[in-house]
Simulated scan of single mutants.
Amino acid sequence: MLKIANLSAWYGHSHILQDISLEVKRGEIVTLIGRNGAGKTTTLRSIMGLVPKRQGSVVFDGEEILAEPAHKRFHRGLAYVPEERRIVPGLSVLENLRLGIIGSANRSKENERIDLIAETFPRLKQRLGQEAITMSGGEQQMLAIARAMMAEPQMILLDEPSEGIMPILVDEMFELFRNMKTAGTTIMLVEQNVELALGISDRAYIMDQGEIVYHDTATALLADKAMQERYCAV
């Protein structure tokens, strides 16, 4: 589904990603972990086309997309949920959901998708008319994920979905990710909760100082406490 080769990225003169290579197979959950500042968010933003200066190769569903703008990647079926959620103040939960399908080839399915989202996220179903910004942080995170799901993406990039969220909502969220995978959505996950992320993942990569320093199955990394302590400060 996704293959990155020798990808570098810069913010101004700062060389953040340094020739990284990784892949995500169709139907997998792959976790990217590492300390703060390792380059994980920049990797997701580069995949989505949100870092202006980059070079290398990003192949999505068999097509090279490195030079494409973010909206064209969205039309190909790639979705991104940023760490800061980007809920739109002043709009209701329902209106925020509708933003997720504008410009999509699935726009004609808007009502059908809203019904499905409402069943998938019972908390949001109860709050469709509520101003989204007044919800709890966990509920806003669920809304950000639900909004990304509105257009039926083939693959979704999730940046720190559990940050600042109550444990009970985190458990619900990660169960949702398992269900998304079962339904056929491919997921690339950046997450600081290493054990929880590895528990639902197929494979994992570790980043350190803008480079990929480790790759193995999630089960192998879960058992390798020394590697976790070395690169993830667990």
Rank of each mutant, 00 (worst) to 15 (best):
Thr120Ser: 10
Ala70Val: 02
Leu44Trp: 10
Thr41Trp: 09
Lys109Leu: 15
Leu17Trp: 08
Lys53Asn: 08
His75Pro: 00
Asn36Ser: 12
Val58Glu: 02
Gly34Ala: 11
Gln141Tyr: 12
Gly27Trp: 02
Asp61Ser: 11
Arg147Glu: 07
Leu78Ala: 02
Asp202Tyr: 06
Gly90Asp: 10
Gly210Ala: 04
Leu198Pro: 06
Gly37Arg: 06
Lys125Ala: 15
Met173Gln: 06
Met155Thr: 12
Gly164Lys: 14
Leu157Ser: 04
Met149Asn: 05
Glu131Tyr: 12
Gln192Asn: 09
Asn111Val: 00
Glu229Asp: 13
Leu116Pro: 00
Thr219Val: 11
Tyr214Val: 03
Thr41Asn: 04
Glu131Lys: 13
Leu97Asp: 10
Glu110Trp: 07
Ile212Phe: 03
Ile212Gln: 01
Ala118Gln: 06
Val30Met: 04
Gly12Arg: 10
Ser162Tyr: 05
Leu116Asp: 02
Tyr205Ile: 04
Leu116Gln: 13
Thr219Asn: 07
Ile168Phe: 07
Gly77Val: 12
Pro161Trp: 04
Gln18Leu: 05
Ala70Gln: 10
Met173Lys: 11
Gly100Phe: 01
Pro167His: 08
Ile133His: 09
Met180Leu: 15
His215Arg: 09
Met135Gln: 05
Pro82Phe: 03
Ala5Ile: 01
Asn96His: 12
Glu229Ile: 01
Met166Gln: 15
Met173Ser: 12
Met150Ile: 04
Glu63Asp: 02
Thr120Trp: 13
Leu124Ile: 11
Asn36Arg: 06
Glu172Phe: 11
Pro153Leu: 07
Leu2Ser: 03
Glu110Arg: 15
Gln209Glu: 14
Leu189Gly: 04
Ala183Thr: 05
Gly56Ser: 06
Arg113Cys: 02
Lys53Arg: 15
Val213Tyr: 01
Leu158Val: 05
Val213Trp: 03
Gly56Asn: 03
Asn111Ile: 03
Lys225Glu: 12
Val88Cys: 07
Leu7Ile: 05
Ile4Cys: 02
Leu44Phe: 15
Glu172Gly: 06
Asn106Leu: 10
Ala144Lys: 02
Val93Gln: 08
Glu68Pro: 01
Asp61Asn: 14
Glu110Cys: 05
Val194Trp: 06
Glu95Gln: 14
Leu50Cys: 14
Ala183Arg: 15
Ile114His: 10
Asp224Ile: 06
Ile133Trp: 13
Gln126Tyr: 01
Glu172Val: 08
Pro69His: 04
Ile145Phe: 13
Leu44Ile: 10
Arg98Met: 14
Arg230Glu: 13
Ile200Asn: 04
Ile47Thr: 03
Thr41Pro: 07
Glu28Pro: 03
Gln228Ile: 14
Tyr205Leu: 08
Asn96Met: 06
Leu198Ile: 09
Asp202Lys: 05
Ile145Ala: 09
